[in-house]
């Protein structure tokens, strides 16, 4: 390609003035990227064009600036600023000639324009309303997501703290609850701090239960069971703060009716773990 010929062939002027066709534009943009001379000549003409336009400026109405800045100020980002202004003004432009030919025609024209204006406002109002509804829906679902993420995060943090504590604190006993014959897959760990009496239960996998039943954790103290609280079935790892106990030779988990029982149903014992601490 003869670059000089391309540059002086009028394409630059055509492109800048908005007279080039789509294919000419694409070709020109590609040539600009390919040939620095084309890009330089393009910049040079643009500057000349801008300078010429600025030299030939005519004072613009200050009122337009006021209205423009007002329109963008009143418009929250994303909404469309008022566009019907020109339509309403057009009505006034038409007023003069039409009025001479009869007031009824003017009224007819005015009412049509008013209707268009009202329809436009109604449309705008409805679209804003639905945008608003969509936004609050999104907001709610984000809140829900955030809450669930928060609780997961808190669990992770709490578990982490308990685990660290268990590792570093010689007073914490970790009891691995082993599934019994009736529930071989049940799995949970009890973290028991014998000095503070705190009991945490890390549930790893407990099979689902009918809705009227819950699991119940027991501490076996001198052969007698003592209630440590109820919890729901889950196959996700969760950490639960159970009731405190000062003593325990073993922990047991049974299936009980919702809310728990005063004494364990031993044939429904799901898992059992013995402490190694001598009481």
């Amino acid at each position: 390609m003869n670059v000089q010929e391309y540059i002086s062939g009028g394409i630059i002027e055509s492109y800048v003035m908005g007279l080039a066709t789509e294919s000419e534009r694409l070709e020109f943009e590609q040539k600009c990227a390919q040939y620095p001379e084309v890009a330089a000549a393009f910049r040079e003409f643009e500057e000349k064009w801008e300078k010429f336009a600025l030299q030939n400026a005519v004072p613009a109405p200050e009122m337009v600036k006021v209205r423009f800045l007002e329109a963008i100020r009143n418009t929250a980002s994303g909404n469309t600023p008022s566009f019907n202004q020109p339509k309403i003004i057009t009505m006034e432009n038409e007023k003069e000639p039409v009025r001479r030919t009869g007031g009824s025609r003017f009224l007819a024209a005015a009412s049509v324009i008013l209707l268009i204006g009202l329809a436009w406002f109604a449309f705008q109002y409805n679209s804003l309303k639905s945008t608003n509804a969509d936004l609050s829906k999104t907001n709610n679902s984000l809140k829900t997501t955030l809450n669930s993420k928060d609780s997961i995060l808190n669990q992770i943090l709490a578990e982490d703290a308990v685990t660290k504590d268990a590792v570093s604190n010689p007073n914490v006993t970790v009891v691995n609850m082993v599934g019994t014959g009736s529930a071989p897959k049940s799995s949970a760990n009890v973290y028991w701090d014998s000095t503070s009496s705190n009991v945490f239960l890390v549930v790893k996998n407990m099979p689902a239960l009918p809705t009227d039943q819950q699991y119940q954790l027991w501490a076996l103290i001198d052969g007698k069971p003592s209630d440590l609280g109820v919890f729901d079935a889950t196959n996700e790892k969760v950490i639960l703060k159970m009731k405190n106990t000062k003593k325990a030779q073993a922990f047991a988990i049974t299936i009980e009716r919702k809310g728990g029982s005063p004494s364990p149903t031993l044939q429904k014992m799901q898992s059992l773990g013995k402490t190694t601490i001598k009481q």
């Binding site: 801008e50 336009a53 600025l54 030939n56 400026a57 005519v58 004072p59 613009a60 109405p61 009122m63 337009v64 600036k65 209205r67 423009f68 329109a71 963008i72 600023p81 566009f83 202004q85 020109p86 003004i89 057009t90 006034e92 432009n93």
Partner: peptide, 29 residues
């Protein structure tokens, strides 16, 4: 830039300053 833009608008929309002002506002929006 409003002056330069208003100039081109007035060169296209002749003899109607009010309409040209409306177009200028539309252009800025």
């Amino acid at each position: 830039y409003s002056g330069a833009l208003y100039s081109i608008i007035k060169q296209l929309i002749i003899d109607n300053n009010e309409l040209a002002s409306d177009v200028l506002q539309e252009v800025f929006i």
